[in-house]
């Protein structure tokens, strides 16, 4: 099993345990993907985590965009903007950086 900073991840690079997450891990993951985490990235990651804490599930992309619109302004509350932050998809890449399990299904 692969590890990031000593924490186990699955074959797709998602942390096995949500509790293993740390800021450093997010930084290592994003570096590997060639992304420098900006304030906007962290807004998304923080929202994903707080939503997950409440619902044990990642928010729908629509829910996420609306939350980001409230925080960062309407021009940034759309999926195009989120994709520019997370080119592999805000749900999948975002969840990985945030230490959440990968959303599965027809998504």
């Amino acid at each position: 099993m692969a590890e990031i900073l000593g924490m186990e991840v699955d074959e797709e690079g998602y942390l096995l345990k949500v509790s293993d997450w740390s800021i450093e891990i997010a930084n290592v993951m994003s570096e590997e993907d060639g992304i420098e985490l900006s304030t906007e990235h962290w807004e998304v990651i923080n929202f994903l985590q707080s939503y997950y804490k409440e619902y044990e599930f990642a928010p729908a992309v629509r829910v996420l965009t609306k939350a980001i619109a409230k925080k960062l302004g309407n021009d940034k509350g759309n999926s195009r903007y989120l994709y520019s932050l997370f080119p592999y998809g805000p749900a999948k890449q975002g969840c990985r950086f945030a230490g959440l399990p990968k959303p599965t299904g027809c998504v």
Binding site: E54, Y55, R62, T104, G105, C106
Partner: peptide
């Protein structure tokens, strides 16, 4: 109950949001 593994509260919240 679904492919996503989306629990009922998250579903309810999403629908209310919509």
């Amino acid at each position: 109950g679904n492919n996503l593994g989306m629990p009922e509260p998250a579903l309810r919240d999403t629908l209310a949001d919509l």
